[in-house]
Simulated assay, not measured.
Amino acid sequence: MKKIILFIILIAALNANAQKPTDKQDILNVLEKQRSDWNRGDIEAYMQGYWKNDSLLFVGKSGPTYGWQKTLENYKKGYPDKATMGVLTFGIKKVDFLTKDKAFVLGSWNVKQEKGELKGYFTLILRKIDGIWKVVVDHSS
């Protein structure tokens, strides 16, 4: 009887750390919504994919930025209108789960503007907060 109880406890512990079958797709959906919002010229909607918290960390060419509001302000400064926002595409290279509620994403980004093209790579850490995946760390180069 003790062996059965220990086995049940072990299975329960393993399942507690397991991903839902939809978690990877849910993360990809967050990124797809961001891409779509960006391409509509709606930075405010794009930012909804990020954790709305002062601890959000964005690392870009100018160094680290902390906070959702500051990150939004930087995006608006760097991309003041639809023309500078251009058309965004992502190339997702991998999605790895660190824990049941934390994931690592590696990808590429490309913005085609009328006058040129910007591109680079990003690493993201997403966290499942209140059942919704949010970007909590973004390192884009």
Rank of each mutant, 00 (worst) to 15 (best):
A13F: 14
Q19P: 15
K2I: 01
L124Q: 09
M85E: 00
G78T: 03
I43S: 05
L28R: 11
Y79Q: 12
S62P: 12
G49R: 06
I132K: 15
L106K: 13
R35H: 00
R40G: 04
Q25F: 03
A83S: 12
V95R: 13
K128L: 04
A12G: 09
K128H: 04
G63M: 10
I11P: 14
N15K: 14
K115S: 13
S36Q: 13
K20W: 01
G60Y: 03
D96H: 15
I27H: 01
K112T: 00
W68Q: 08
S140W: 01
L124K: 08
E117F: 07
L124G: 10
T89W: 05
Q113K: 15
V136L: 09
K94F: 07
K82R: 12
K61R: 11
L106W: 02
L31H: 03
I132A: 07
Q34P: 14
Q48Y: 02
Y66D: 01
D138W: 09
F104V: 07
S55D: 03
M1I: 00
L14H: 07
A12V: 08
K70N: 09
Y50M: 15
G107I: 03
K24C: 10
S141I: 02
K115G: 13
E117I: 10
I9K: 06
I8M: 13
I92Q: 13
K52G: 03
K77W: 02
N53V: 07
D23K: 07
I132E: 06
D130N: 15
D96V: 12
Q34W: 02
S141Q: 07
Q25G: 12
L106M: 14
K2A: 01
G49C: 03
Y46F: 15
A45I: 02
L72G: 11
V105Y: 06
F58C: 09
Y50G: 05
G67T: 04
K24Q: 11
K52M: 12
S62R: 14
A45W: 08
K82Y: 02
D23T: 03
S108F: 10
G67I: 04
V135G: 14
W109D: 04
G63H: 06
K112L: 06
K94A: 12
M1V: 00
S108Q: 14
L6A: 02
